[in-house]
């Protein structure tokens, strides 16, 4: 493996080993090991159907793998032994951003943020309101509090999606192709928000097809194919001639070297 652990960022937040997920005959995740350190930005790339979404959704158990071990805060449990409490702390540790936003379409922007804060985190309405407004300001949407999701552009909706996740103060943000459903001219505004988070040292896992972005922002690139992590490492190594042939084939399609 090309990946060398970076000493400055070596406090592990979450570690999974031997993740395996099957849908019928199809093995979508095949014995995947994945570790995440504090402050790290990891980009997962790879062809369609390679299991990127399945992996990232397994990290908070939105998808429940058939086999594998989870480790957080020094506690390690196999998937069969995972308790409600353990699952809850996985969910609390992680925030998730979806390709198609996943906003609650019957609720206003503000309510999208405050409902989880009140119902899941137990904040008072007032505290929730205050925190939600703060976060929405961070993503530049303080003037959209009363709007409903469908009244916003895709880029704005995704920023609400990010804000909703951030408001819960997760340690890790999981983003599954956050810009893939956006009009090209809206991609930038969302990438800016993510870049800003990375500058603040936020720990993130991003599944993305935006190779320029991955190259610039990620500390580590994970390349997946057919349910396996084929290789991983620093962008300089992955986006280089020394990368495995399969990776180069894949990256060639993005004309990365001509940009």
């Amino acid at each position: 493996m090309l990946y060398e652990s970076n000493d400055l960022k070596s406090v592990p937040i979450l570690k999974v080993t031997g993740l395996t997920k099957r849908y019928g005959q199809l093995t979508v995740l095949d014995q995947v090991d994945f570790e995440l350190s504090k402050g790290e930005v990891v980009a997962i790339i790879g062809p369609s159907g390679s299991g990127k979404s399945t992996l990232i959704k397994s990290l908070n158990l939105l998808v429940k793998p058939d086999a594998g071990t989870y480790e957080i805060e020094g506690t390690s449990l196999t998937i069969q032994k995972i308790t409600k409490a353990f699952q809850k702390s996985l969910v609390e540790k992680t925030g998730m951003v979806f390709q198609n936003f996943g906003l609650f379409s019957h609720l206003t922007v503000l309510k999208n943020l405050t409902l989880p804060l009140v119902k899941a985190k137990g904040l008072s309405e007032k505290e929730a309101d205050h925190r939600a407004k703060n976060v929405l300001q961070q993503v530049g949407l303080e003037d959209k509090l009363a709007s409903f999701p469908h009244q916003l552009s895709g880029g704005q909706q995704q920023r609400v999606g990010i804000a909703r996740a951030l408001a819960l103060e997760p340690e890790v943000l999981l983003l599954d192709e956050p810009t893939s459903a956006l009009d090209p001219e809206r991609v930038g505004e969302v990438l800016e928000v993510i870049k800003a988070l990375s500058r603040q040292g936020f720990t993130m896992v991003v599944v993305t097809h935006e190779m320029q972005f991955a190259k610039k922002v990620a500390d580590r690139i994970v390349f997946m194919d057919e349910g396996k992590i084929i290789t991983q490492g620093a962008p300089e190594t992955i986006f280089s001639n020394h990368a495995p042939e399969r990776v180069k084939q894949f990256l060639n399609r993005f004309n990365l070297y001509t940009i």
């Binding site: 939105l62 198609n100 996943g102 989880p116 119902k119 985190k121 996740a165 819960l168």
Partner: peptide, 27 residues
């Protein structure tokens, strides 16, 4: 009702019952 919203509800920490009551049933 779009199942993505139930997924999202899970990731923000809502329980199954809360998801049903606050997210899915109103829609």
């Amino acid at each position: 009702v779009d199942s993505l919203q139930s997924d999202a509800a899970y990731t923000v920490g809502l329980t199954k019952l809360q998801t049903l009551w606050y997210i899915v049933l109103p829609q």
